[in-house]
């Protein structure tokens, strides 16, 4: 192949891996999109009626199954959970945001691993490893730590890792989008999770949407002060990334100042006053929850069968 063409394609692949996730996160999803998929909104469909305990169990199940089975089972779980977003308030929009988020995670994580993974690791990961070369990088790419060739197995390895995280993130977001912090507090208290853990989770649930609000405001102010003002609009996502990085410290400090007040607010209102806590609204286990439990059992069973059929992927993927 023409060496110039090889150079061009190599750099295109490189910039795709680096640029596509950034574009998806900052331009396509945006800070408002992140806020939407990390906030609870009241609604009354099946997903909102399922007991939070069941949703927590689902998240744990998804985490286990995605970790111990082959990548396409993780991918299937991700797609199934994403499809369930249609049942949420503004479901279509949340599905689109979720999909963009998954794509950015998969592309970013796969590209973060695939070019760097060595054949020694791949030979452990894939018994009887016969590399299928997809692309040969120019030799000087090794300066960036790239392996000389990109193999199909390396991409599969990257996908394996990315679908472990994407399915877990999607199921965790489902819990956050369909339950209020107090519902989760009640649930976790009932299953005897320590108060300190519950409180951290509550603070997290309150803080995450605020993180995006503060980051958004800080980035906009930087833009007003001149960030990216001398460059093309095309580079705006890149400058938003720079602005986002600059905004991290003031945002965290602002949040920490708030977190101290939340701790004071809880402790001065009797949090941890007694070992037991009473509830005005009790969370009941309904027929819907039993159906959901059957689905969880089915997922676990499928994972077991998959492992028995040789689709387990546990030990080699030590990441």
């Amino acid at each position: 192949m023409n060496s110039l063409l090889v150079e061009l394609i190599s750099w295109l692949i490189f910039f795709f891996g680096v640029g596509a996730p950034l574009y998806l996160i900052f331009a396509a999803i945006g800070i408002r999109g992140f806020k939407e998929i990390t906030s609870y909104e009241p609604y009354n469909t099946l997903l909102y009626r399922i007991n939070p305990i069941v949703k927590i169990a689902l998240s744990i199940t998804v985490m286990i199954v995605a970790a111990i089975t082959i990548w396409w089972i993780g991918a299937f779980l991700t797609i199934a959970i994403l499809a369930s977003y249609l049942d949420l308030k503004n479901g279509k929009r949340k599905l689109v945001i979720g999909m963009l988020f998954v794509v950015s995670t998969v592309v970013g994580t796969s590209w973060g691993y695939a070019p760097f993974v060595t054949s020694s690791i791949l030979s452990i990961a894939f018994p009887g490893y016969h590399p299928v070369v997809i692309w040969a990088w120019p030799s000087y790419f090794s300066i960036m730590g790239y392996q000389p060739q990109l193999t199909l197995q390396a991409v599969e390895y990257g996908l394996q890792i990315s679908f472990r995280t994407s399915s877990i993130m999607m199921s965790a977001l489902l819990l956050v989008m369909t339950n209020t912090p107090s519902q989760i507090l009640r649930t976790l208290h009932k299953i005897s999770i320590p108060d300190s853990v519950i409180f951290s989770l509550m603070v997290g649930m309150k803080s995450i949407p605020m993180v995006f609000t503060y980051l958004d405001e800080s980035i906009k102010i930087q833009m007003m002060r001149g960030l990216g003002s001398r460059h093309s609009r095309f580079l705006k996502p890149f400058y938003m990334l720079i602005g986002g990085i600059h905004a991290i410290v003031p945002t965290i400090i602002h949040l920490l100042r708030g977190a101290k007040d939340i701790a004071i607010s809880a402790d001065t209102r009797g949090f941890r006053a007694t070992k037991k806590r009473s509830y005005v609204e009790d969370i009941r286990f309904t027929r819907t929850d039993y159906y959901a439990v059957i689905i969880i059992v089915a997922i676990l069973t499928t994972a077991g069968v998959a492992i028995l059929l040789g689709f387990g992927r546990t030990i080699p993927y030590v990441t």
Binding site: R269, G270, R272, A273, T274, Y279
Partner: peptide
């Protein structure tokens, strides 16, 4: 939130 923390009856 506070009365629930004090485990008062409903």
């Amino acid at each position: 939130f506070a009365p629930e923390n004090f485990n008062l009856d409903k």
